Amino acid sequence: MGMEMFEKARPYIAMTSLQFGYAGMAILTKISLNNGMSHYVLVVYRHIVATLVLAPFAFFIERKIRPKITFQIFCQIFALGLLGPVLDQNFYYLGLKFTSPTFGGAMNNLVPATTFVIALIFRMERVKIREIRSQAKIVGTLVCVSGAMLMTLYRGAILPMPWSSHDHPHSSNAATSHDSNSDMIKGCICLIIATLAWAALFVLQASVLKKYSAQLSLATLICLMGSLQSIAITLAVERRPSAWVIGFDMNLLTAVYSGVVGSGIAYYVQGLCMRIKGPVFATAFVPLTMIISAIMDSIILHQNIYLGSVIGGVVIVIGLYGFLWGKAKDTKLTTFTSSEMLPTSHHEKNTMESIETLGVPVESNITFNMKTQPSTV
């Protein structure tokens, strides 16, 4: 009984633990960026580490099922490397530098809704205005965007925390306040671009996986392609040779931790949980990152938590779960519709199993049964 409960709880434990990993990565990244590490160089090292970690597993586990790479698939993998490792990570790190891990975690909550909008544009999602599930997805998307705008435009009072100092003198220097607001706007724009790139990555990756089904190999190739592209961009933008030098310090820890946890382990855990529970389940844990980051951000980095960030974060979470509720209804409807097409009698189930053992797909079996079924008319 105990083992059975543990097996059922394992996906929940895994996804919750992963959010702690993401929050820790955001804190380490913020510290390294504040210490002067180039975010371009960090992206390069992170994905080199991720490639080295994923490659052995992809080579041995998927060596018999790995499809051939056509020119079209290569171009799509090239685009995935550009969207994820290059655009998403560089703009995310730059936005993190101007804002905080809490703000970055809150912006990540926009990814499911943004992905829905992009998929809707490319007709990968269908919306029927009169159906409640479609209304929930649309309203949830709008609420998420409203929460993000609220976090950007309104800061409000500083919320006192038990572990932080209650002495928050207001600076009389107007220039300092202006620079702070300017940095916040820059950071918000960078995080929005990162969110769009990440959402586009999901949409394109879903399309590529239909032709290249080896998920672990695809993740490795994305990291490899992103590493090569990031090296080229960093060589063109970062002219300081010293920026590439890292020792046994926080910068090295950030690069290794981000590559192993943020990319390597994350790909495996998310893929495993999505295979068991579906993508909606995995996405539902994203708001935990914002909450964990806010607490760790306040304790470790002594960052202030503003009322506007809390209200905006709550609005984003409400919108997110409204959107996910609509997606869950879509998933249930799809599952129910598919189950209606499957044979239900004992004889037909035995026939399916026998034909499957011969290597014939289930769909062929269903067609066979439909054609050979005697007419009752």
Rank of each mutant, 00 (worst) to 15 (best):
G326T: 14
G326N: 04
G326Q: 02
G326I: 08
K327G: 00
K327V: 01
A328Y: 13
A328G: 10
K329D: 05
T331M: 08
K332R: 15
K332N: 08
K332C: 05
L333T: 06
L333G: 01
T334H: 07
T334Y: 04
T334V: 01
T335N: 05
T335W: 08
F336V: 08
T337W: 01
T337R: 06
T337V: 15
T337K: 07
S338V: 13
S338A: 15
S339F: 11
S339I: 11
S339L: 15
E340K: 14
M341R: 10
M341D: 12
M341Y: 03
M341W: 05
M341Q: 14
L342Y: 06
L342V: 11
L342I: 09
L342E: 13
L342M: 13
P343H: 11
T344Q: 12
T344S: 12
T344Y: 08
T344P: 00
T344C: 01
S345E: 06
S345D: 11
H346G: 03
H346R: 06
H346L: 09
H346M: 11
H346Q: 13
H347K: 01
E348W: 08
K349V: 15
K349F: 11
N350T: 14
N350V: 10
N350K: 09
N350H: 11
T351G: 00
T351Q: 06
M352E: 08
M352W: 07
M352T: 07
M352A: 10
E353A: 09
E353D: 09
E353V: 09
S354D: 12
S354F: 04
S354L: 14
I355C: 07
E356V: 06
T357F: 05
T357L: 09
T357V: 00
T357W: 05
T357P: 00
